[in-house]
């Protein structure tokens, strides 16, 4: 279970106008601005839930994920995941989570994918037997058998993303973070990825937190949607709530309508 209570995070950002004069001035005196990336964020997520975490660019999605995955330390507030505080019990916590950053690869570029998987097996100290079983299952469901022996640099984006998702699940995590997992994928790959994630959840009870701008991803995967804007949680409900509040049946339009209505875009 994930419990976030009144989490706040502020960044200090440097400000200056354009121009050489301003650039010189900033050498000596700098103006800083404080940006409240997260402002009293609270929510509770139960085991086995599938959450769509949405919001416009710069709303605080990444900051939330980074705090939940132990990368960032918040300024104040409480966060417990199965009794562990991510930034205090980093090692114990992260051995139970899987993270897919859609725009960043964790596979070694020049060598076959299977080599990266074997390194992950050693990093997470997965027992050999369980590794074999997991690999077999992932290979079958994501159709990796042809890809495992190929160096990462020779894979297409869709193929690579399937491998990335498998890499995040080699150690059978109970909590999976997906950050834009379908960005840039073709229709077939998108459907395959969505199918797989649903299946992972129903068969292994994996909790899934998905952040994306693709409303179809959210429609296909999430049963509960949390909307964040300007660092605050603005809506926590179902897809129907989004449609009703956004005033449109089409999710894309509803989301856009909602962003405008709440003045967060």
């Amino acid at each position: 279970m994930i419990v976030m209570e009144n989490i706040c995070k502020t960044y200090r950002v440097q400000r200056r106008s354009a121009g050489i004069k301003e650039a010189c001035r900033s050498l000596f005196c700098r103006d800083y601005e404080y940006i409240h990336a997260l402002d009293n964020v609270s929510f509770t997520i139960h085991d086995g839930e599938m959450i769509g975490y949405m919001g416009p660019n710069g709303a605080g999605k990444s900051s939330t994920i980074k705090i939940l995955s132990g990368i960032l330390v918040p300024d104040s507030g409480k966060c417990e995941i199965d009794g562990l505080t991510p930034w205090k019990n980093r090692v114990a916590h992260v051995s139970r989570i899987g993270v897919v950053f859609g725009q960043r690869s964790q596979l070694w570029w020049d060598i076959p994918v299977i080599d990266s998987f074997e390194l992950l097996r050693d990093i997470y100290a997965v027992p050999e037997k369980r590794y074999r079983e997991n690999l077999e299952e992932l290979t079958e469901l994501l159709q990796l058998s042809e890809l495992l022996k190929t160096p990462t640099r020779q894979l297409s984006l869709g193929q690579r993303m399937r491998c990335e998702i498998a890499a995040a699940l080699v150690h059978s995590p109970s909590l999976l973070f997906l950050d834009e997992p379908t960005i840039g994928l073709d229709a077939v790959s998108k459907l395959a990825v969505r199918d797989f994630i649903r299946r992972q959840n129903s068969e292994h009870g994996t909790t899934v937190i998905l952040t994306t701008h693709d409303m179809q991803d959210i429609a296909a995967i999430a049963r509960r949607v949390i909307l964040i804007g300007k660092g605050r949680i603005l809506l926590d409900g179902t897809l129907d709530d989004i449609r009703r509040e956004g005033g449109a049946d089409d999710l894309e339009k509803a989301a856009a309508g909602l962003y405008r209505k709440l003045e967060i875009s």
Binding site: K66, S69, I123
Partner: peptide, 13 residues
Amino acid sequence: RRGEFDRILVRPR
């Protein structure tokens, strides 16, 4: 710069 240190932090080592 490439954000790869994030990846290091989400691994139990």
